[in-house]
Structures are given as C-alpha cells and as structure tokens.
Design a binder for these strands. Structure first.
Lengths: 247, 247
DNA sequence: ACGGTGCAATCTGCATACAGCATACGTAGC
DNA sequence: GCTACGTATGCTGTATGCAGATTGCACCGT
C-alpha cells in the first residue's frame, strides 16, 4: 500500500462564497451603505442564491453585515465609538493572550513571532508609503494572532478574531494610513522580548501600552478625517465619557 | 392621525428555528454526539430544510454545533479544558465589564442589579434543591449580563454572550448542581456594592475572586463527575499547565 | 402643481426537486 | 467464516420555482 495522499476536495460553495464575500468586504469592495442583493451576488459569483444566503447568515453573525430594517443587508458601518469599545475588548483579551503566551509558547512559536518583528523592522522606507503601511498592518495582524494561538486558548483566538475583523472593517472604511503606525514595530519588539523571556508582567504592560497607543492613533485619525469631511462617518461624538482602556 | 401601533409581524422562520434549536441545545434536549439531521429537524419543526440550514449555520458560528468531519453536525461537546479556558476569557472580559459599569451604570440599572441580588438571596431553602439551583443560575446569568450591558459597550455584550452560551452548554452536559454554588449570592452582593459605590478597583477584585471561585467549583465538580464515570466526558486531563486566570 | 392611489418591478423567504456522496448492509467468492 | 465488492438507503449541497412584501414610479384627481 503506497502512500497516496487524499485528493483535495474543493470546499462547499457556501464556504467559498463566505470566504469570497468576507474578503471583498474587508477589502472595501462594497460602497458604504450599499445594499447586498442576493440575486446580484449570485450572478456575480455564478452560483445560486442558496449558498449566498448561507454565507450571508454567517457574515451577519460575524457582525460584518447588518440588517437594514426590512430584510435587506448591508456592510456594517463601524463608528469611532465602536472603535474605542473594540479596542477596550481587544485589550482585555490580549492581556490574557500574552499572559498565556508567556506560559505556553513553544520555541517554534517564539521563533515565528520574532520573524514577524524582524520582517516588520526590515520594511524598506523606499517603497510607496501606502503599500508599506499595508504590509505592516498585515504583519501586525499575524503577530497578534500568533500570540493568541500561542496561549493555547482556542476560544480566545476565536473571540479575538471577531474583534480583529471589525477593526479591519473600520480601517477600510476610513482608509487610515497614519505615518505614526510605524511606531508599532518598536512596541512589537518589546512585546516579543517580554514573551520570549517569559516575563508576564512586562508582557502585559507592553501589550497594554501598545494597544492604548494604537487606540489613540486610530481615534485621532478618524476624528481628524471626520472633521475634514463631516457627516461622512457615523458616531462622531465626544469620547470623554467612555471608560476606555482603564484598569 | 390616531396612533395606530404597527402590527406585530412574526419573525422569519429561520429566526424562529434558530431560537428553537438554540433553546433545545441549551436545555440538553439532544443526546451528546447525537447527529443533527436536517430532514428530521425539518419534520419535527414542520418547516422545510431551507430555514433549518440557515439556523444551523448560525449555531455553527455560535460554536454550539460542530461539524463532525463529513458534513454532519452535532452539538458541541465542552471539555474541562474548554471550561477553564472559557473562564479565563470570561474573567478578562468581565473585568472590563465591571469597570465600565462602575463608570456608566444608570440608577435604573443599579436598581435592577440590586433586584437580582435580592431575588437570589430570597430563594427559600425549602424548595427542591435542584430547582433552587436552576433559578439561582438564571439569576446569575441575568446579573452578569446586566453588568455587561451597563458598561455601554455593545461589543463586549456580544462577546460575553458567546462565552455564556458555551458555559451553559457545559452545565447541561455535566448536570452540575454543586451545593457550593449558593456561595455566589454573597459574591454577587459584593460585586454589586462595589459597582453601586463606583469603586472600580474593588469591583474588579470582586469579579475576579467570584469567577476564580466559580471556575474552581466547576472544574472540581466536572472532574469528580468524570472520575466517578470515566470516559463519559472529553478532556479529562490534568490542568496544572494551564495559565488559568492569572494576571 | 401637489397629493394620493394603483401598479409594476424587484427582492426576500420558503419549499421542493435533484444530484452527489457516505454509510450500512447484504451477498458472493475464497 | 471471513473478506471484498456491489447495492441500497439516507443525508447533504445546490438550484429553482413560487408567494408575499417592499419600493419606486406613473397616472389620476383635485
């Protein structure tokens, strides 16, 4: 009996549809408040409405699409308030994440984490700034997600993924490209070093200051953007009453 | 123009189906590892397979049902390890929850919180212990959920709900009824008082000790149950390597 | 010109039909 | 008797058809 690898079975259409729509949404391929019409999507993706509907239900659970009152669906719109609250959730979860990673990360995972840090640091400044920022944000996502995985807490990874998705959505809806984001490379190295040395307190402190700085960057940028172009974004109110990242 | 109230429109079948199945699952109406067959469910609920499928996709996203390898779905089975990890997530989130509630809870919400505490304390010991524990656990759920709502963080509520669902699932799968759970009434009052007095540090400390105690109760009970009846539950391993509620 | 009514187009919700696949069972060959 | 193959049954995945609802528009009346 020779070792015959199992044939690659293409995933179900509703799964592929889900991935395709999710990617499109997170790439900003849909205009804000554009209605997602099943028949149109079905025609574009060349499938029937049935897998489309199932994919849309999943996206709805993800919070990436929202019912618009009477049956219709549209891409969820993330406000500044949402961003602040999402960062609060993210900080709460990622503190657990780094603590778990300090205790549980394997050598292999630590090496991968360092690789993310090094890759980000190696991004040459010559390139087009936007592309560079894009790549940096991808590395940022991978770094944080790997920390969560390293904690060994399967549920934590799932919860954080949901938060990440919505933050990515905010990003495409505001097209952030603040040059200050380059700072995260320094912050990432500090987080990595603390984890690699298994120093829980330092790691928690590092992730906290990283996320608080990120939150401030995002809020600042979005508010600047919404004052330059008023009424283009929801939730443009003062944030001073929020508990925002305390504790 | 007299005020005519809008007619009550019954929700869509897939929504009703979702609610019905969710309730059934969290009530333990399905045998562990029993396969959920679309056609059977459709026949029982007297609807076609289409709304059933949409409801099942949602439940899958909720983590309440899981694919069993080849297309089939079954109720998710929660192990002791999962319980520990879920409590870790829950603690991370609920610390944010109480901190937010300290800052944001309205007088009305505080009154409702106190009502939960009082109702729990008033549960007469005469009743059948199981019924009493059941009622207490319902009050427990309402108490914690209202704290999350009081924080004003809409995403936090959603994330916590997901955690609560899985813990409820664990409960029905292990039929916990540890008499020690009566302790939570004392712990709840302490949490409530700290929130009512807007003392963030005390509230965070109170929720932490409450959840750590709950985690210990649940783990102890499940492990006792699994040693009494070995191999009836998954994940019966030592937990000493887990980061478990540190930080 | 303006408001209201009726109609047409479009979309969602649901049911059903059909095809492919997995599993279980029975049967034939050894 | 045991293994291996063929077959039958049941379930999932997908497409499609139909009914009800919503929206936009045109037409009519004032």
């Amino acid at each position: 009996m020779v070792a015959v690898p199992p044939i690659q079975r293409s995933k179900s259409l509703h799964e592929q549809t889900y991935q395709a729509l999710r990617t499109s949404i997170l790439s900003g391929d849909f205009a804000p408040s554009e209605r997602l019409v099943e028949t149109q999507l079905a025609q574009q993706l060349q499938v029937s409405r049935t897998p489309i509907r199932e994919a849309l239900r999943q996206l709805q659970k993800d919070g990436l699409v929202t019912s618009d009152g009477s049956g219709g669906l549209q891409v969820t719109s993330i406000s500044v308030i949402d961003a602040v609250q999402l960062y609060d959730c993210r900080l709460a979860l990622e503190q657990l994440s780094v603590a778990g990673a300090c205790a549980q990360a394997t050598q292999r995972q630590l090496a991968q984490l360092e690789d993310y840090v090094v890759q980000a640091e190696a991004l040459v400044p010559g390139k087009s700034p936007n592309l560079k920022v894009m790549q940096l944000l991808n590395l940022d996502y991978g770094f944080h997600r790997l920390i969560a995985e390293s904690s060994g807490n399967r549920w934590l990874v799932g919860l954080l993924d949901q938060v990440f998705d919505k933050m990515a959505l905010l990003r495409v809806q505001t097209t952030q490209h603040n040059p200050e984001v380059l700072e995260i490379r320094i912050e990432h190295r500090q987080i990595y070093q603390a984890i690699a040395e298994r120093q829980v307190d330092r790691a928690v402190a590092a992730i906290r200051s990283h996320l608080m700085a990120s939150q401030a960057r995002v809020v600042g940028e979005v508010q600047q953007l919404s004052t330059a172009n008023p009424s283009s974004l929801p939730g443009d109110v003062d944030l001073l009453n929020s508990p925002s990242l305390e504790g």
